[in-house]
Design a protein around this nucleic acid. Sequence first.
DNA 1: GGATAATGACCGAGCGCTCGTTCGGACATA
DNA 2: TATGTCCGAACGAGCGCTCGGTCATTATCC
Lengths: 217, 217
Amino acid sequence: MGKKSPQPKAGAKGRNQELADRRVRQIVDAAVRLFIEKGFHKTTTRQIAAKARMPIGSMYEYVASKEEILYLVCEAIHAEVEKGVIEAMARASRGKNILAGALREYFAVCDRMSDHILLIYQESKSLPRQWRKKVLENEVRITGIFITLIKMLISSGDLPQLGDDAVEVTAHTITVLGHMWTFRRWFFGRKYGIDDYVRIQTEFVLGLYGAAGKARR
Amino acid sequence: MGKKSPQPKAGAKGRNQELADRRVRQIVDAAVRLFIEKGFHKTTTRQIAAKARMPIGSMYEYVASKEEILYLVCEAIHAEVEKGVIEAMARASRGKNILAGALREYFAVCDRMSDHILLIYQESKSLPRQWRKKVLENEVRITGIFITLIKMLISSGDLPQLGDDAVEVTAHTITVLGHMWTFRRWFFGRKYGIDDYVRIQTEFVLGLYGAAGKARR
DNA sequence: GGATAATGACCGAGCGCTCGTTCGGACATA
DNA sequence: TATGTCCGAACGAGCGCTCGGTCATTATCC
């Protein structure tokens, strides 16, 4: 008999669902901070419980394992990032230079969520297969937002015609350029602010495939 | 008194230096494979020793701690990547479209070293401060190769004039675009080969700042 | 309404195990 | 004899998680 695949719990049983949700949120909030600070493996369940202000026994009423906590943390982070990106796009699409605005807004989200994005890069590989898959799906969904954006800009003539492949890869690239700010901050942070980074990368991306003239500075 | 900072050993003492070097290499080779497969924290020192075909006691004659092994692994990987990139640049600079050639060669290195590059992203944060710093310096040095390349292309008129900031950020961006292939392979791998990726990203980068016309397809 | 049973929430000492590392001696070579 | 090398059983700290139980609240019955 192999390893049993993980059984989610996430406080789903009790009579008082609202309480369970609150407790799980306590746990996840505590865990996020600790994982960012010391990493997943060096954080103990006891520390999480302590920071969440509950005894370990109680914590395990609402969560099945330490790995489930990591999964919930990843989900929570992606939810917040996605929300941030969607709001950012909404704001950007009211401006005149949509692509530049979108980049500025998106990079701002990445800047705000730096530590969290980094956490996903470094720890999501510790998840059981099944959960890791779901986390990757979140990543794809967020990238999808940029695919939509790019297609919109193509049909409005702000970007040249591109094949579907190129659109997809470019969307991923934009996503990663945001992440890059988070995992090269140890280098950039000393010399540039996020504003400098936005400016330089925007000029870079706006050259996109020798892009349509109107998007140029 | 706080934690003592790590004391390297790396087989530096014995009468027989050549033996020590060989043993350390055995250990590092074994560790690389295991770390890639299961990650640093889930790999035990006993497993490393077993794969290196030596008893644990012996292993600790040549290495001071598990963390030192991780450090040596990171150093070894960076050394190999740097070697690969330098050779790639040498080959590319003989071609006619230098930037495109450099990208193709560099991405090929990243493809070959995928697992290793990923390993550094995921585990280098587990290093003690002092060693992590040295690993990041390696990263900077590799990026430096692209800075040199870009400056060369600017002075030859193949790229437009760019400020030092823009040159630096662009070099980092190119570096990261290579890494991107490694940590988004779970997505790209299903639909594209490295060749498709190279083609699309090259078109993207060649649009660089609406780059000089001669570099265009 | 009051007695009683049932249920959910809370709790933390302790279990069972794994891990990184050590240490004292065996053995070979100089 | 002295020195470098090899070795692996043993150590002890620390881990994730459980389990048996208490307490408070709600449901059930007469």
